[in-house]
Design a protein around this nucleic acid. Sequence first.
RNA 1: UGAGGAGGCUGGGUGAUCGCUCGAUACCUUCGGUAUCGGGAGGAAAGUCCGGACUCCAAGGGCAGGGCGCUGGGUAACGCCCAGGCGGAGCAAUCCGACACCAGCACCACAGAAAACAAACCGCCGAUGGCCAACGCGACGGGAUCCCAUCUGGUCGCCGCGGCUCAGGUAAGGGUGAAAUGGCGGGGUAAGAGCCCACCGCAGGGAUGGUGACAUCACUGGCACGGUAAGCGUCGCCCGGUGCAAGGCCAAAUAGGAAGACACGUGCGGACUCGAAAGGGGCUGCACAACGGCUGGCCCGGCCGGGGUCUUCGGGUAGGUCGCUUGAGGCUCGGGGUAACUCGGGUCCCAGAGAAAUGGUCACCUAUGCAAAGGGCAUAAUGCUCUUGCAGGACAGAAUCCGGCUUAUAGGCUUCCUUGCUCG
RNA 2: CGGGGCGUAGCGCAGCCCGGUAGCGUACUCGCUUGGGGUGCGAGUGGUCGUGGGUUCAAAUCCCGCCGCCCCGA
Length: 111
Amino acid sequence: MFLRVSREIEQVKRQGHRVSTHFFNLLFFRKSNSFSQVGIIVGRRFGIAVRRNRAKRIFRELVRETHNDLAPGYALLIFPKRDAIVEPFQDLKTAWIGSLRKQRLLTSKPL
RNA sequence: UGAGGAGGCUGGGUGAUCGCUCGAUACCUUCGGUAUCGGGAGGAAAGUCCGGACUCCAAGGGCAGGGCGCUGGGUAACGCCCAGGCGGAGCAAUCCGACACCAGCACCACAGAAAACAAACCGCCGAUGGCCAACGCGACGGGAUCCCAUCUGGUCGCCGCGGCUCAGGUAAGGGUGAAAUGGCGGGGUAAGAGCCCACCGCAGGGAUGGUGACAUCACUGGCACGGUAAGCGUCGCCCGGUGCAAGGCCAAAUAGGAAGACACGUGCGGACUCGAAAGGGGCUGCACAACGGCUGGCCCGGCCGGGGUCUUCGGGUAGGUCGCUUGAGGCUCGGGGUAACUCGGGUCCCAGAGAAAUGGUCACCUAUGCAAAGGGCAUAAUGCUCUUGCAGGACAGAAUCCGGCUUAUAGGCUUCCUUGCUCG
RNA sequence: CGGGGCGUAGCGCAGCCCGGUAGCGUACUCGCUUGGGGUGCGAGUGGUCGUGGGUUCAAAUCCCGCCGCCCCGA
């Protein structure tokens, strides 16, 4: 479910396709795996430890609620932006699903 | 009731649901998975500024380096805490203080006469010595007038009011500065000055009180000794380094090496010789407690050493695992101590992640804030209270563990103290 | 977990060790030079010395606490 190996993350960062929204940047890359994996990257410059943890928790929850509907075979990287941690969760979820659907990363089953 | 000071506690709550992690138990086929039950961030977890525990390293001696700095106590230890002394601020409660030493070196800009060892720019004095010298006294000769007397001016001598400020005295006053060689008053003097005296300050030894820092008292000395050590430095005390990525165990892939035993001198230099070179061979000189490397500041000290033969198979990276949370531990009762703290009894187990868990959503309650409408109460302004709606929790996230410090923090609760006003 | 460095004018840097006047280059403005521009020459403007305290008569400089940035080791 989550992408943890450093070499694969570097590969996505180099070769992935980039999508930007107000709340996050998204990189995705087609692999040969049978199911998709997601990595969440929050650097030191994002803020203090409380804000970094909050960003990771929010996006981890988003992935947990939607990963059953992800199209198989992709590796995704999420770079949260600072506006995301003050936004209501439902708005973030709408933006997240919208971005995924626009890039055809979801299966056809509607939410 | 207004203003102020010193502390202590707390740091939103409840429920439902979907998830994460650890432990125990049960089941499933071992890695592991599932179910049930239980635990799951802070007062600062932060900054990483000190002190320790623990770990490994010849951890030994010396130098260098670093830290601390009023006294007594507490503590495992501390740069922390408590109590006290002294100095400063405040009417006070109270607060603040790197608060040892100026012997040596160095520095003290500008201004000022002079900035550290004594001097004197303006000024004051000029008593004493020097120069000038009024009045007066005496002598000499001249004139009014021929003589005496008298008057008048002249020269010399004595006295010396007064003047010069030359020698010299002085540091009272002026002005500069952050700082100028005790302060203020009186006497004194030519003018002045601890020159003399009283009080205050300072220094010295003494007595008394106190464990001590220190305080008080009287005596003696007429005052010498500027400031800066958060400048170099001196004195006293303390500090070995390393940091859980410490360190132990298991152990892929890849690469070949490592350990032990045996006998043989080794290091540096010189020319010769084989060789295209790299390198090798013997000869010879010197040294050997030598030489080279490691020991992560330096020296001593300590450890290791080149090639050959034989024997053995281990070392270590990724990764895993232990260290990993029971501890200078929390709560409570009693005793000691002014207090910090400590002693004894009872009781409890209270996070252990690892690209790094402790979260998401919904509902209700609540401290508080805002808005409008209405009701009630008291009123000089105005305030209090009830209902409704909206917003809605500050700073901040463990990473080996403790004791402190520092910094951030919306608010709420509470104890004690000082001072002003009003009423009784 | 530990060690080191930096912060000064719009920009790049001196000055700090050993305290007293903040300076250099460039940029900007003005003048001269040119028919005009560039170059050159001369003059000038511009700095809470990261921040809060302390020591000192006096702090960019010495000491302490914070803030930000960068680098290194295990």
